[in-house]
Amino acid sequence: MSALLEVSGVSKSFDGFKAIDNLSFSIGEPELRAIIGPNGAGKTTFMDLVTGKTRPDSGTIRYGSASQDLTKMSEARIARAGIGRKFQKPTVFDDQTVTENLTMALKSPRSPFTVLMRRPSLVERAAEVADQVGLRGDMGRRAGTLSHGQKQWLEIGMLLAQEPRLLLVDEPAAGMTAAERERTTAMLVEAAKSRAVVVIEHDMEFVRRLKCRVSVLHEGRVLAEGSLDHVCADPRVIDVYLGRQEAVDA
């Protein structure tokens, strides 16, 4: 498995607070990786740095076979290079149908002429993506009428429609029912068969079901890495993270 993302010696401070401190690790392609850690560990800042929303004070973030330095690229260029990000709160177009949300997101030429000419194939492709995220039977529904979990799936579908090589997903299980969490697990595992998927999550049972490598961040650094059982047995992880969570069965 080759490295798709290489984070090397990256640091970022905000008003004297070091959110990321000489962070180094890599993500393969394909790979499913979970990132866990206490609040303030640097998880969201890591995603901000990879997507270009924030610039590091030092270090490099290399991406792809051409080893592009993401720290020198704009947010739009990074997105075009194949990096998609899903925020914790779903961001879909409530007044548009599931089909319309997906067709707008599809990776294709965007001129009015090509959109009109390709409309049948766009709809067919949207149906394929809807299948992947469990929304084939809801394609005619307005997104605003979907449940919270279904909106999460629609946003994941909109990102998959863009054919990303790296998908960053922030707390996908938050607010979901048990059945929705189970389907989301299967969805992410399947997506990671052909790309890199990085999941930030606090729900340890959800992480356990992903059955993937786990990176624990603390004070902007990787504190431990390995299987969930391995990191949960690490005294340092218990001290700074698991010991503060009342509902965790380590």
Rank of each mutant, 00 (worst) to 15 (best):
S227E: 04
A233G: 09
K86W: 10
D138W: 09
T184W: 03
V50E: 06
N101L: 04
S11G: 12
A161D: 11
K151P: 01
F206A: 10
T45Y: 05
A192C: 07
G84W: 05
H230G: 06
G140S: 10
L70P: 01
P90R: 09
E100P: 02
G149Y: 00
D131C: 06
R55M: 05
Q162C: 00
T185W: 00
G28L: 01
P120W: 10
E155G: 02
R213P: 00
P56K: 07
M187G: 01
M117L: 15
A19D: 08
L223V: 11
L135W: 00
T103M: 12
K86V: 15
D48H: 13
P56H: 06
S74W: 04
Q96K: 09
M176R: 02
V198R: 03
R118V: 00
V248L: 04
N22P: 04
V7I: 15
V222F: 05
L160Y: 02
P235M: 12
P90M: 05
E171W: 06
R236A: 14
E6C: 08
A174N: 08
K86C: 09
G42W: 09
A105L: 08
I35Q: 03
P109I: 06
A66K: 15
Q132F: 02
A66V: 05
N22R: 15
Q68R: 15
T60D: 07
L154V: 01
S67Q: 15
R110H: 05
E225G: 01
G52V: 06
T145L: 14
V199R: 02
P109E: 15
S67W: 04
K89V: 10
E6S: 15
